[in-house]
Design a protein around this nucleic acid. Sequence first.
DNA 1: TCTTTATGGTGAG
DNA 2: TCACCCTAAAGAT
Length: 264
Amino acid sequence: MPEGHTIHRLARDLRKDLTQRNVPVSSPQGRFAESACVLDGDVVSRVEAAGKHLFMHWESDQILHIHLGLIGKFRPYPVNDPLTGEIRLRLEGEKTAWHLTGPQTCVLVEPAVVAGVLDGLGPDPLRRDGRRGDFVDRIAGSKKAVGAILLDQDVIAGIGNVFRSELLFMVGIHPSTPSNSLTEDQADEIWNIAADLLRVGVKLNRIVTVTPEDAGAARWRLSDDERLYAYKREGLPCRRCGTEIVIGKVANRSMWWCPRCQPG
DNA sequence: TCTTTATGGTGAG
DNA sequence: TCACCCTAAAGAT
């Protein structure tokens, strides 16, 4: 579920469903019960996404910091649906109730915490303040493998394990390539494609990287088996050259690439 | 009915 | 580099 596109889409949907109304807030599971009481009936004033972080600002000046982590989900359900599972946080809208399960972070914070998180993040292509130049500088300033550095949230905020494999496939760069050996044009291209793919992700509410040219169809039409170039496709033929996609470990996590399209 | 896995991040050794 | 946290769904038995 959660790379940057998920969080920005959530911010948009939560804004639409929950602002300008008193929101019943609860924690059916109980682990957020005390804070839920503090927020119960409050009004959402602003919802902000930064990389994989979500901040909900309330009119009482409370700020709710949410990070989904690997397994967290924040999804809408009909308000009258029976409650099942480990619902840490429930926000009730008019027809829709949002259920948060398995988050890495769900806590009320002071403004200084928000500032600290924002300060620690690299540029986010989905934010107005996300500067491509900052990304290019950070790419040039590290000798780590590019496949590793793309996961560093202080280099570029919002990229995760799916996007890093897909990005490097699309620019034709081997994941082990030292970051500081990329040309400025290559870094620019990674940024531009990342921005494009993230925007597509927000729009479709899922990651689809295969281009209409390669697919012969619009992105929104592609099935789960058709939408990615490399991620989880080890042993399958590359969509561009037919060579078998390979899998390896980069920065302690699985990574996929085409040995022919991404020589190294 | 198990075990494994997942688009993430932290903190200890 | 590793264990660990959180949860649900998919896969193996």
